[in-house]
Design a binder for these strands. Structure first.
Lengths: 157, 157
DNA sequence: TTTAGTAATGAGAACTATTCTCATTATATG
DNA sequence: CATATAATGAGAATAGTTCTCATTACTAAA
């Protein structure tokens, strides 16, 4: 489990090097933002945080780099929101296996660290599936959907 | 559990009526296609099947009706594909609680009927989550990701 | 340190799924 | 039958994302 940003950056550097990619300033900025947010973020959120730090990150560069980082196993692009790509650091990088809490009202997505009971149940389920059908399971996604604390407050107000 | 298309159509009619919506020919065609495919389908797949039956379903009408059907609880729009909306009949309509097998290679999505072990584990997990954090869980999504039989064949060929 | 050669950048065009607009057509109701 | 409302369909508009291409920044060899 990667716990400091320094360790994170050096791991990223290795992953990029494996694919002959440079760890440029822009790429480092993106990883830094994702590390510090520690929740899935949309492109505009990433740009906003960068902008707060006077980092000018052009849209096309940001998308291109996110795609490259994804290809190198640094970033994962989630499929969780209706019409927005959300990005987070890959589990293979952080070592933090987790799932997501998705608010059905505002679309906000937050991490939910997994627990061993749930994971055991899922592995069993995956095995059952593999036995029964012709599909090679390599991973799973679990999202819990509902109403986040913010939206709950707004509703009752 | 709805097992015949006739039952399905009458349930849909009721659901629409609750919201003062008519069960028009187009809407019936969409429901029919989704019922018969019995797997999540993109708009273009839906249109293709309709077209095979000489049903001319304009894009704008199809989207509009899918949105209305979703609003009435007839259809569910999945978030499972990178850049395509996928539609299926809602579980509340069919009574068939299931999850999805998503092929990471071709993006194809298929149904996976759930089983009680898995569901029990998930409800427990949901309860644990609710206790620990401020998030009101109302549902869950589980996708198993991997390689579908088709892509497996192609790879080994 | 120069010099290629290659990689990354940035601005804006292009693309694509989806939604919107609005005039026309169909349907239901008094 | 008349009128109000709903649904339709063609195409414009929108928005997230990707592509293009000229420019700039690195890197490595001479």
């Amino acid at each position: 489990m990667i716990d400091t940003q320094d360790k994170c950056h050096s791991s990223v550097e290795e992953l990029l090097a494996e694919k002959n990619q440079r760890y440029t300033t822009h790429r480092k900025s993106i990883v830094r933002v994702l590390f510090e947010l520690s929740k899935p973020a949309s492109l505009s959120e990433i740009l906003a945080v960068a902008s707060q730090r006077s980092i000018n990150l052009p849209i096309s560069t940001a998308y291109r780099n996110l795609a490259i980082l994804e290809d190198c196993g640094v970033v994962r692009r989630l499929i969780a929101s209706e019409d927005l790509g959300l990005y987070e650091l890959a589990e293979a990088l952080t070592g933090n296996h987790h799932h997501h809490l998705i608010c059905e009202q505002c679309g906000d997505v937050n991490d939910l660290s997994s627990n061993s009971n749930l994971e055991r149940a899922l592995s069993r389920a995956a095995e059952m599936v593999m036995d029964q059908i012709d599909f090679q399971v390599t991973g799973h996604r679990i999202d819990l959907t509902g109403i986040c604390s913010n939206c709950n407050k707004v509703d009752s107000a």
